[in-house]
Amino acid sequence: MIKVLYFAWVRERIGVPYEMLETQSGTVMELVEELKQKEERYQVAFSDLSALKVAVDQELCEFDARLNGALEVAFFPPMTGG
């Protein structure tokens, strides 16, 4: 099981702050494709990946990052701290 988290407008478009998933996806990109197959709300949220960032186990990474054994994946728009 992997915990998938969503923040800011990604959370609003998908409708939940997080969900637990059973997945065979080997990379973040494969997970995104798997989610997009599920329901339209995922297609909407993931329609433009250049507008999104991803973190695997709370470390920022690229969409081609491997998931092997990861506990947590988070999707969110570019951060606006400070």
């Binding site: 923040f7 973190a55 988070a74 951060m79 606006t80 701290g81 400070g82």
Partner: peptide
């Protein structure tokens, strides 16, 4: 902090 700390302002 501006672009790497995970905060989002609404």
């Amino acid at each position: 902090l501006k672009s790497r700390a995970p905060f989002w302002k609404k």
